[in-house]
Simulated assay, not measured.
Amino acid sequence: MTRPLVIGARLRRYPQFTTLGPRPNLEDYSPQELELIRRAPVVFYPTEALAPQLAALGKRLFPSLACHLLEGDKIKQTTLFKLLGLPHPRTRVFYGSQRRDIAGHFAFPFVAKKPRASCRGRGVYLIENQAQLDAYLADNKVAYIQERLPIQRDIRVVLIGFEPVCAYWRVPPPGEWRSNVAQGAVVDFAGVPPRAVELAARLARAADLDEVGVDLAMVDGQALLLEFNVKYGRQGPALMGLDVVDYVAQGILAGKLPPPRE
């Protein structure tokens, strides 16, 4: 039996897979390795560098092409939520001279984010006055502005194969308003509302996000989508006793991943 082919390094500890590892140039792979890539019907963890090209060749990917195309881009994710008609905080993107109109759409305080390539709570700002807004605009040509929600914590739902495998509250430490575990947030598994988990699963299935961490907020009993990450943190699941890498590996070896197409 041919071993599953992996490009990224995530499953490298498992000898049951052929892990090639990411390389800066395609020529860095040997002819034999290139042939393995060409022949593989499914490529696991193809990396952002190769995912679009492999999908164009008709390869099945895990995580999916959608995961790779939307990872780390808050503008694309917000557009997706709106197209799907799924609940999301009021958000606008301002380009060029449009940035002068921010105050006409949002009253202080509001949240401003680096629209692309931000994670672990970095690139997220609470804007309370014009001076803070000016400082944010000086570093961001495109402004991603979102209403500040009346919340003290948010929710992370991890889904693998579209199925929720872990859900927990993220509670910021005293003096910190961001709820990222990387910023010191505490994980709480008690009382996560089923409607939040259901909304995360609805998003994952609708958008073909087959391995993802979805962040949500609860406002007045309603679940709202915040964003999602394919490169989600593993600390929260580990505190529940879940090794997500092993979960994925065993799912692949059992033929459950990628999930069947409906």
Rank of each mutant, 00 (worst) to 15 (best):
L5Q: 07
V6E: 02
A9G: 07
A9T: 10
R10E: 15
R13I: 09
P15F: 14
T19V: 14
G21W: 04
G21L: 08
P24R: 14
D28G: 00
Y29N: 11
S30Y: 01
S30M: 06
P31L: 01
E33W: 05
E35N: 12
L36G: 04
R39Y: 03
A40M: 06
P41E: 09
V42R: 10
V42T: 15
T47R: 02
E48S: 13
A49C: 04
L50H: 12
Q53D: 03
Q53W: 02
L54P: 01
L54S: 06
A55M: 05
G58I: 11
G58A: 07
L61A: 03
F62W: 15
S64E: 10
S64D: 11
C67S: 15
G72P: 02
G72D: 08
G72M: 05
D73H: 15
I75N: 09
I75K: 10
T78N: 15
F81K: 07
F81Q: 06
L84C: 06
L84A: 03
H88C: 06
P89G: 01
S97R: 10
Q98P: 00
Q98T: 02
R100Y: 09
R100H: 11
A103P: 10
F106M: 07
F106E: 06
F106V: 04
F108A: 06
P109V: 00
P109H: 05
P109T: 04
F110P: 01
F110C: 09
K113Q: 11
P115R: 10
R116P: 06
C119L: 12
R122Q: 13
L126P: 02
Q132A: 15
Y136F: 15
D139R: 08
N140D: 05
N140C: 04
K141S: 14
A143P: 14
A143T: 04
A143R: 08
A143N: 10
I145P: 10
Q146L: 05
L149N: 08
P150Y: 15
P150Q: 15
P150M: 14
R153D: 08
D154S: 05
I155L: 07
V158W: 09
L159H: 07
I160L: 11
G161Q: 09
E163G: 09
P164K: 08
P164Y: 11
P164R: 08
A167C: 04
Y168S: 00
W169G: 03
R170K: 12
R170L: 04
P174W: 04
G175S: 00
R178A: 03
S179V: 02
S179A: 12
N180I: 06
V181G: 10
V181F: 14
A182C: 08
A182Q: 13
A182L: 09
Q183R: 02
A185D: 12
V187E: 09
F189E: 05
A196K: 04
V197S: 07
A201P: 03
A201Y: 11
A206T: 11
D210K: 04
E211W: 15
G213I: 07
G213V: 09
A217M: 03
V219P: 02
G221R: 01
G221E: 02
L226T: 01
F228T: 12
Y232C: 12
Y232E: 14
G233T: 13
R234N: 13
A238M: 12
L239Q: 15
L242H: 09
V248A: 09
V248G: 13
A249N: 12
Q250S: 15
Q250Y: 13
G251S: 07
I252D: 00
G255I: 02
K256W: 13
L257V: 08
P258L: 13
